[in-house]
């Protein structure tokens, strides 16, 4: 359904870490990782090393989408722009289908969501609001 695959996260930690990439030539920290080269300076892929990004961050923006881009997608769903505690800003699906209770600045953390598809079981990384304790 999506290409949100296990290449993008490191499942061991709680919450799961995102698989970032550090450039050994210019020091740029990037997400998502790629097998080709550094987007900042052009260094080849052998100079890029995995760097775990903590799966915690704060909402910069959320948008609930009511019209799915593809007919086989459930709607509504909510996508967020999230500033990770480690710096990079990523976009991810939230576990909540709508954004009514969410505010910019709210804390969120990564969770793994498993579901079955036509092609078998699939695990995706999404983000969930951190409940106030």
């Amino acid at each position: 359904m999506t290409s949100n695959t296990s290449e993008l996260f490191l499942a061991g930690a709680t919450p799961p870490s995102l698989r970032g990439q550090r450039c050994g030539a210019c020091g740029a920290l990037a997400f998502p990782p790629n097998p080709y080269g550094c987007e900042k300076c052009g260094a080849t892929a052998d100079l890029l090393t995995d760097q775990a990004l903590t799966g915690r961050g704060r909402l910069r923006a959320v948008a609930t989408t009511f019209v799915p881009p593809r007919k086989d997608m459930p709607a509504p769903f909510t996508v967020a722009s999230i500033e990770l505690a480690d710096g990079p800003v990523v976009r991810a699906l939230l576990t909540t289908p709508t954004d009514e209770s969410l505010r910019i600045g709210d804390e969120v953390q990564a969770v793994l969501v498993s579901f079955s598809t036509e092609n078998g079981a699939q695990t995706e990384l999404r983000f969930a609001p951190v409940e106030a304790s």
């Binding site: 999506t2 290409s3 949100n4 695959t5 923006a61 948008a63 989408t65 996508v79 990523v90 976009r91």
Partner: peptide, 22 residues
């Protein structure tokens, strides 16, 4: 060959809805 977390979910209208919110 570069997967991301939201591939397929973020059509242009969702991209710009996020920018609008911010």
């Amino acid at each position: 060959g570069v997967p991301d977390l939201v591939s397929g979910y973020v059509a242009p209208f969702t991209h710009f809805a996020l920018l609008a919110h911010e």
